[in-house]
Every structure is written in structure tokens, then in C-alpha cells.
Simulated assay, not measured.
Amino acid sequence: MVLADMENGRDGEDGVCEPDVIAEASLLGGFIYSTETRALISGLAEMHEDIKNRESVTQRFLVIMDRHQEQPHLLDPHLEWMLNMLLELVRSEQSPPLLVHLGFKFLYIISKVRGHKVFMQLFPHEVSDLQPVLDLLTRQDPKDHETWETRYMLLLWLSMTCLIPFDLSRLDGHLTSEPGLAREPIMDRILAVAKSYLTVSDKSRDAASILVSKFVTRPDVKLRRLGDFLDWCLTTVAQTNELTMEGTVVLDGALQSLAQLFKHGEEGGLPAVRPDCAAVPGPATAGGK
């Protein structure tokens, strides 16, 4: 009866609609924007240079995705084709940087609504994906505040590609480098990228901590680099001035990476942190001062 009154533009007997009725009426039956979403993504290549059209299409895509904030699972049957369409854009050698960044922006919007834990698992993560993703990430400018979504999504993608089930040192024999330059092991390249993004001021810092938690707990990386990485984190915490804005950002990245590493204890491949663990010395107490 109340629902019928609502449909006729009237409230219930008390003049106020019951909250559970409103919630039920607002529930979606499925993802009804499939055709429109395909059209929006398909048109990105043609309209990305026109700032007005680009903003209009992005805003419309945001509206569509935001309507599923309360029921993100409705996107699940459609995530794969949306991901594949956007990856086709960002992987194409014919795509200019602006189009690549726009594609990653759309990927971030989907990830934000559905949740990165679910969405990142759909990224292709074969052996052949590792170096291209790493190369693309290393070409990004961490100081470009207009393209942080690209770096955020690439870090999540790298978090998946680095889970390939064999020793990463086997890839080093296939690495190419400029004549006369020493080749850096891929394990060190990934760690260097992760560390560099743990100290940035945008959301890429969160994705970098996720990368660390998955990468450093690999058996081969844990054996060769875990100790050095923990030393880096503890030294960073001890030597950083938390009273400055820059120091706060750096501390957040280091502590967030440690939290991700130890979050699940043995489940993450590391011993669980005991409550009686000694506190990390701060800047004033480091070195016994």
C-alpha cells in the first residue's frame, strides 16, 4: 500500500515513507546500462582530445557506476568485458598518452565501486604481462597529479603479475638493456618502484603497499630481499620527521607497508607480530639519544 502511494506521488499515513520501503524501491534489478557503457568506452578513442566531450563522457560513466555503490555485485557479470575493452585501449601502441590515462581513469572508477580486491584479480597476469606492466609504470611521472589513477591501477596490476609461480631470477636472462648498461634484476626493479610510490602523496601510496604485501612475501623475494626491505622501512620510520607534511606522507607509506605485510601474520607468509614487540625508535630516540 505504501509503495503504491509512493508511485502515485503520495506518502504513507504519517506523511513519511518507511525507510525500508524506500530502500527496497531503490534497489536495482541488474546492470541495465550495459549497452550505454559499451558505447561510452567504444567512443573514447574518437572523443578523448575534445576536453568538453571527455569530461561529459567521464561524468556520465561516473553516474552509471555510482548508481551501483550499494549493489556493486551487480557489476560482476560485466567486469570482464569492461576490463578487456579498456585494456585494449591502454595496451595499443596507437593510443596516445591522453587516451591511455583516460582508459586507466575509467578502470579506477570501476575499481572504486566494485572494490580493488575483487577487480584487480581480473587483470591478466601471465609471465608475458610482467615486464610490459613494469615498463609502463616506470615511464610514469609520480609528480603528475592529473594521472594518478594510471599509476594506482598499474601498481595493482603489477601486484597481480608479480604472483607468477616461479623464481623471478629466471626472467633476468631474458631481460634486454641498452648496450653497455648493466641489467638490473627484475626483483630489484619491482622493489625500487614499490619504495618510490610508498612516499608519494596521492592514492598510489595505498596501491604500493598492496604491491609490497604480495611481492615481498613471495618465497624467492622473502629469502633474498625481505630483510633489506624491513631495514629500509624501520630506518625510514626512525629518521623521518613526523612534524612535517612530507614526513607524514613518508611515515604513512612505510607504516602502511609494514601493516600490510603483517596484517594476516603467517597467512601473509610472515610470522605474526607479537603484542610485546619493541616499539620502533622515533627520530629523538634513534641511536640511543
Rank of each mutant, 00 (worst) to 15 (best):
R54I: 01
D76Y: 11
I51N: 05
D144A: 13
M82T: 05
F61Y: 15
L136G: 02
D66C: 12
Q94E: 15
Q59K: 04
N84R: 08
V133T: 15
I64V: 05
M85E: 14
V133H: 07
D66H: 09
H101C: 07
P96Q: 15
M153L: 08
E49I: 00
K52A: 07
T150Y: 06
D135Q: 10
Y108M: 11
T147W: 08
Q94K: 14
R139V: 06
R114S: 02
R114C: 01
R54K: 14
S92E: 08
W148M: 14
D66P: 00
P132H: 08
P77K: 12
L136Q: 13
L87F: 05
K143S: 14
N53V: 06
Y152W: 09
M153R: 01
P97F: 13
D141F: 12
H48G: 02
L158W: 01
P142M: 00
L75T: 05
V100Q: 14
E93P: 04
E70F: 06
L156E: 07
V63I: 14
E70C: 03
D50V: 00
L87N: 02
F119Y: 08
D141Q: 05
H125F: 10
L122F: 10
V113G: 02
M160N: 10
V100R: 09
M85H: 01
E149Q: 15
P77D: 15
Q94T: 12
S111M: 08
M120G: 05
L134F: 00
P124T: 07
H116D: 15
F106W: 07
T150N: 06
S92Q: 01
L99F: 02
D76R: 04
P132S: 12
L122R: 11
S56A: 14
E149C: 04
L86E: 02
R54E: 02
L62M: 12
E46H: 06
L136S: 13
P72D: 08
V118H: 07
L87Y: 03
Q59V: 08
V127L: 09
L137K: 03
L86H: 11
N84Y: 12
H68W: 09
P132C: 06
R60D: 12
L74P: 04
I64R: 13
L74S: 02
N84I: 00
G115M: 13
T138V: 07
T150V: 03
R114M: 08
G103C: 14
H101R: 15
T138K: 12
Q140F: 11
I110Y: 12
L74D: 04
L74I: 04
L87G: 11
T161S: 09
V127I: 05
M65H: 01
L86A: 01
D129N: 11
V57G: 02
L130N: 05
M160V: 07
D76K: 09
F61M: 14
P132A: 05
D50P: 00
E126Y: 07
L79T: 11
M47D: 01
I64A: 08
D76G: 03
R60G: 10
K143C: 10
P96H: 04
W81G: 13
L86D: 02
P132N: 09
T58P: 14
S159K: 13
K105G: 04
Q71I: 04
P96M: 06
